[in-house]
């Protein structure tokens, strides 16, 4: 299953809820303000990094760039992808849960 999260972990528990729901082997894509959840060196980094063994986490690169961030600010193991990568993730997973 593909999960998307579009909220910053600093204002919403969406990412935390998502990661506690996501089964091992799921894909989680951070989009919009959700990309802040992928930052290394933040107050939320440790629990996000902990989830990386179980689920694959991606961050939408155009949303990072728009916020003055780049892939090298992400927690190691989180991959930056473009909209084409978003489409590929949506195809590769048989269902999608958008955590709104």
């Amino acid at each position: 299953m593909l999960h998307t999260v579009n909220k910053s972990p600093f204002e919403s528990s969406s990412l935390k809820t998502c990661l506690s729901f996501a089964k091992s082997g799921s894909d989680v894509l951070l989009i919009e303000d959700g990309v802040y959840g992928g930052l290394s060196g933040s107050a939320h980094t440790s629990w996000v990094a902990e989830a990386l063994g179980d689920v694959r986490v991606y961050a939408l690169e155009p949303d990072l760039k728009a916020r003055g961030l780049s892939g090298d600010r992400l927690i190691p193991g989180i991959e930056a992808v473009g909209y084409d990568g978003f489409v590929e993730l949506a195809c590769a997973n048989d269902k999608i849960q958008n955590w709104l």
Binding site: N6, E32, D63, G82, Y83, F86, C91
Partner: peptide
Amino acid sequence: HQASDSAYQFIRAALAAGH
């Protein structure tokens, strides 16, 4: 909200990939 923009970009990318 960015939702309209995100949806638009996703759809363009999906169309570009032949979906």
